[in-house]
Design a protein around this nucleic acid. Structure first.
Length: 648
RNA sequence: GCCCGGGUAGCUCAGGGGCGAGAGCAGCUGUCUUGUAAACAGCAGGUCGUGGGUUCGAAUCCCACCUCGGGCUCCA
């Protein structure tokens, strides 16, 4: 054994250390601060515990807590402490898995005698966890054989099940499993790595309890899951909690009530919204703009009914593949089943098929705000983002094979431009491929279609992320993920290529060669669902809609009753010029009326008093800006016009 | 659909077997005439989600259903 080992650091320099040195020794030899912040060490690309010996001649990198990788380790280790706490508070509890996730971690348990956690238990568990952290117990790694592992976890069926899958390399892959023990006799099956000891943890909070199926299988046992979050410092934890509070404040369901935009009356049914006048106005503005842009882009507008005979959805394949997601049929006309439509495509196909089409008709682009109904499982309904009835901004492009790629590129261009106009500018593309379990058509057709989509995406200069098996049953799709103002990602638009439905419906066109050919169909939606898009915009803007979408753009507040006439004239002028303005009479102090307007998040409040009446001016109090006195009315109108035009 | 937790006035929430069920905000009516984020007073407002049950007595305990929230799963 050599007396020294030599390792290479990320900057390319090498360092000699006594043989038997650990990652912790390395960190300490580099600096005191690094030694304190280090959580694990990466050795030749593999993360390891700081306490393990370093091999000779390895490329090493110290990972600190304040990095994505470091936080992941931290969270994973905190999950272990959670398990230790629960097992000590509920003797006989079984524990399953406890990984790190975005912003935190969870651990799944099965409590004895079918007990369940309540929110109050979280505090007790947290206290116990702090105790364990305070004791600074080391995480000690041990390796053992599968049989020994099964022995150690004799009372833990979930752990045994995991070990039994070792062959499929879930834990180690070489017939051995690794364990982590700490004092108090707690031992967990774990691949690691972990922080050196529990004392390194502490900036965590348990967030909620939930049910979760073992291995995500609906037929498997329901376990009790505890979610928590963990960070490298008290400050980072507090910032995260603040972000959550911010997200909560801009929740569209909350803003929908506060700003009187929409509601979900119990009398109507779960997942079925009604839009109130203000929400209806915003929605109409959104839709009108979309219509105008579609018209300019060569789409033609069609309409189709909400219900149809079952045969149509039999032919489309929806009843075969999508029946679970459909409302049950109504039996009418002595035995005919009618269904509420879950999709618009079959109707557009019938419009296409209504007469013989020539290649000269193609591409044919049909657009409809089509209201569809989907019977979502009761547990998944969620405000406007997951409703049971919603309008799709749905279009179907019928074209030749040769035109398909160009049409997709064009559609993608259109989508991104339109989303930008609504104020969403941060995109990511995702390419969803063939779902192995439920797909119609041959693999070859799918490959061709997928490749066309990929090329179109790349042509836009956006490298799509692959979503293996995420396509619909009839075709692959490119979807646009949008990042909103606080960094959350929403799946928005989809563009789907479909060779199947034209075939099922026997669609044809007569080519230049006077022969009959089969067209290709492209399904595309930009908002996906108007309701959902409404919700995303509402959250993106935190309720403060830009002037072009704001239900009320300007509120005029007379200082005293004798300014009413001037205020009314001002409102009349704004209305006449096509703006949305109103006024509130002076039977309440000005401050109170301004406060109301601010809580309604209006773009502009205009205050008019003696000076303004005399000079033909207004006091401008813009949202998020400084008050300006004595602005000439014409100048204000110009400013408003510029805002509306610029969509700000 | 499954697990956990909720549903009390328009909104936000107290009250948890026994006085006619409460507060703040919003609403209405007066008074106040106001220059940039809450004037004052009074009034009105609830079959305590729905239906059953236990009890001398239920907003309160039990059951079922509806519905909302957080998850699982699924998806636009």
């Amino acid at each position: 054994m050599p007396a020294e080992i030599c390792v290479t650091l990320p900057d390319g320099t090498t360092k000699s250390l006594p043989s038997g040195s650990t990652g912790a020794d390395l960190a300490a030899s580099i600096g005191k601060r690094l030694a304190r912040d280090a959580v694990v060490v990466e050795v030749d690309g593999e993360q390891r515990d700081l306490t393990r010996d370093l091999p000779e001649d390895a490329a090493v990198r110290i990972i600190t807590a304040a990095s994505d990788e470091g936080r992941e380790v931290l969270r994973h280790s905190t999950a272990h402490v959670l398990a230790q706490a629960v097992l000590s508070l509920w003797p006989g509890a079984r524990f399953a898995i406890g990984p790190a996730i975005d912003d935190g971690f969870y651990y799944d348990f099965e409590l004895p005698d079918g007990q369940t956690f309540s929110e109050d238990d979280l505090e007790r568990i947290e206290d116990k966890m702090r105790e364990i952290v305070g004791a600074d117990q080391p995480f000690v790694r041990a390796e053992c054989s599968v049989d020994e592992g099964l022995e150690v976890f004799a009372e833990q069926p979930y752990k045994r099940e995991i070990i039994e899958r070792v062959e499929s390399s879930e834990v180690a892959g070489d017939g051995s499993v690794s364990l982590y023990r700490n004092t108090e006799g707690f031992v967990d099956l774990c691949r690691g790595p972990h922080v050196p000891s529990t004392g390194r943890l502490g900036h965590f909070k348990l967030m909620k309890v939930a049910g979760a199926y073992w291995r995500g299988d609906e037929k498997g046992p329901m376990l009790q899951r505890i979610y928590g979050t963990a960070w490298e410092s008290a400050k980072a934890l507090e910032e995260h909690l603040e972000r959550l509070r911010q997200a909560e404040a801009r929740d569209h369901r909350k803003l929908g009530v506060e700003l009187d935009l929409f509601s979900f009356p119990d009398e109507v049914g779960s997942g079925l919204a009604v839009f109130h006048p203000k929400g209806g106005l915003v929605r109409r503005l959104m839709e009108d703009y979309s219509r105008t842009r579609h018209e300019q882009a060569g789409y033609e507008f069609v309409y189709s009914p909400h219900i149809t005979k079952s045969a149509l959805f039999e032919q489309s394949g929806h009843l075969e593949w999508f029946a679970d997601g459909m409302y049950p049929p109504m039996e009418l006309d002595g035995g005919t089943d009618y269904y509420l439509k879950p999709m618009n495509c079959p109707f557009h196909i019938l419009i296409y098929r209504n007469r013989l089409r020539s290649y000269r008709d193609l591409p044919l682009r049909m657009f409809e705000f089509g209201t569809v109904y989907r019977y979502e499982k009761s547990g998944v309904v969620h405000g406007l983002t997951r409703a049971r009835g919603f309008a799709q901004d749905d279009a179907h492009i019928f074209c030749t094979h040769e035109q398909a790629e160009g049409e997709i590129t064009r559609a993608l261009d259109f989508v991104l431009g339109l989303l930008r106009d609504y104020g969403l500018t941060d995109f990511e593309l995702e390419l969803s491929t063939r779902p192995p379990e439920k797909a119609v058509g041959t693999e070859e057709e799918w490959d061709t279609a997928t490749e066309i989509l990929r090329r179109a995406a790349v042509a836009k200069g956006l490298d799509p992320v692959l979503d293996e098996g995420g396509g619909a049953f009839y075709g692959p799709k490119v979807s646009v993920q949008v990042r909103d103002a606080i960094g959350r990602s929403w799946q928005m638009s989809t563009i789907q290529l479909d060779f199947q439905l034209p075939q099922r419906f026997g669609l044809e066109y007569v080519g230049a060669d006077n022969e009959r050919h089969r067209p290709v169909m492209i399904h595309r939606a930009l908002f996906g669902s108007v309701e959902r898009f409404f919700a995303v915009l509402l959250e993106h803007y935190a309720g403060a809609f830009p002037a072009w979408l704001a239900p009320v753009q300007v509120r005029v507040l007379p200082v005293r009753a004798d300014h009413h006439v001037y205020a009314d004239r001002l409102v009349d002028r704004l209305l006449a010029e096509g703006y949305r303005a109103d006024t509130v009479v002076a039977d309440e102090p000005l401050g109170a009326r301004i406060r109301r307007a601010k809580m309604e998040k209006l773009p502009y409040v205009l205050v008019v008093g003696d000076d303004d009446v005399a000079a033909g001016t207004v006091g401008v109090n813009p949202r998020g800006g400084e008050v300006e006195r004595g602005v000439h009315v014409d100048d204000f109108v110009d400013r408003l016009a510029a805002d509306v035009l610029a969509h700000v």
